[in-house]
Simulated assay, not measured.
Amino acid sequence: MKKATTIYCLLLLLLIAACSKDNNPPAPPVVENNVLLSSTTSFGNVLTDSLGKTLYFFSIDADGNSGCSGGCVTNWPIFYKDSLRLASGLTASDFGTITRSDGQKQTTYKGWPLYYFAGDANPGDINGDKVGDVWFVAKPDYTFMLAKTQLVGKDGVSYDSTSTPGNSPTTYITDDWGRTLYAFSPDSFNVNKFTKPDFSNNSVWPIFEGTAVQNVPSLLSKADFATIDVYGKTQFTYKGWPMYYFGADSLVRGKTLGVSVPLPGVWPVFLQSSPEAPKP
């Protein structure tokens, strides 16, 4: 009798364990983020994939389309994720997707298509920054970026970096979304001579506002950027030149209509080599 009771108790315990297992199903597998913010010594926070492989911007892509095709893609493979899972500190609205001319899809960040660099053998490698002065490590906190495109004015004429008609791409400074910034040639060092106190003309040439310069592409020097007060608003400057958008560009990335208004040279784009603004 004692033996039967023992067997009964064992069976009862097994039954309870089985029921308990059914009521507590295993936890679902942890889904890893496929876009990370990785901290580096030289570059601060950079965008990487889930394995820590570094991502890059291409300055030729200022209009939001990929200018890297053919053999370029061999050296700079495209980055694409159908469903993004972002690490803390990243914002979903900053990401998008484009369809390339070759039919492939590519993930973008702040409108910049994202790439790997074939020369990065290991996670954490950043060997592609500043290659050809057109490739830059993808960072979430650029205040400024560099574009390299053909300047085309509102008059439909193509211009070179000297505001002279000509067909040659120019490397110029944009905001972090690739929107063109301009200088006003009558301005002087840290003095905005265009904007009216009531900002009634600000829609024509809006000032580029911000609080502080965070990061700039490695081809530029952060020390060349600063801010000034303009009737209670804060405007960014480069080498003392106040920085503006052109209203007719409609904040569309890659547009450079202002280079011909009202005449070429009055509102030039910012070059790395732009001279310091004259002292008042």
Score class of each variant (00 low, 15 high):
residue 114 L to V: 05
residue 77 P to S: 07
residue 178 G to A: 14
residue 99 T to A: 07
residue 153 G to D: 05
residue 186 P to I: 12
residue 170 T to N: 02
residue 141 D to N: 15
residue 199 F to C: 08
residue 70 G to R: 03
residue 81 K to P: 01
residue 156 G to Y: 09
residue 155 D to S: 09
residue 159 Y to Q: 08
residue 71 G to R: 03
residue 134 V to E: 09
residue 128 G to D: 05
residue 88 S to T: 15
residue 207 I to K: 05
residue 206 P to R: 07
residue 158 S to G: 10
residue 136 F to H: 04
residue 196 K to D: 04
residue 170 T to R: 09
residue 124 G to R: 03
residue 164 T to L: 10
residue 121 A to Q: 05
residue 94 D to S: 15
residue 191 V to F: 00
residue 95 F to Q: 10
residue 143 T to Y: 06
residue 137 V to E: 02
residue 153 G to N: 04
residue 188 S to M: 10
residue 120 D to Q: 03
residue 102 D to M: 02
residue 81 K to A: 14
residue 101 S to P: 02
residue 174 T to R: 06
residue 151 L to S: 07
residue 172 Y to I: 14
residue 104 Q to H: 04
residue 152 V to N: 08
residue 146 L to W: 00
residue 141 D to T: 15
residue 74 T to P: 02
residue 98 I to R: 12
residue 159 Y to D: 06
residue 119 G to I: 00
residue 115 Y to E: 01
residue 75 N to Y: 02
residue 178 G to Y: 14
residue 181 L to Y: 06
residue 197 P to Y: 09
residue 121 A to C: 02
residue 117 F to V: 00
residue 146 L to K: 02
residue 176 D to C: 08
residue 121 A to F: 10
residue 135 W to Q: 04
residue 153 G to P: 02
residue 207 I to S: 04
residue 72 C to L: 02
residue 179 R to Y: 09
residue 109 Y to K: 08
residue 108 T to A: 09
residue 71 G to E: 07
residue 105 K to W: 02
residue 91 T to H: 05
residue 106 Q to A: 06
residue 154 K to V: 00
residue 210 G to S: 13
residue 133 D to C: 01
residue 153 G to W: 04
residue 77 P to C: 03
residue 186 P to V: 11
residue 118 A to Y: 02
residue 208 F to P: 01
residue 161 S to N: 11
residue 105 K to A: 12
residue 143 T to I: 03
residue 96 G to S: 04
residue 147 A to V: 04
residue 157 V to F: 03
residue 193 K to G: 10
residue 191 V to T: 14
residue 185 S to P: 03
residue 157 V to L: 04
residue 132 G to K: 11
residue 139 K to H: 00
residue 146 L to F: 01
residue 192 N to A: 12
residue 87 A to W: 06
residue 113 P to K: 05
residue 93 S to H: 07
residue 148 K to H: 03
residue 195 T to L: 14
residue 198 D to G: 14
residue 184 F to N: 13
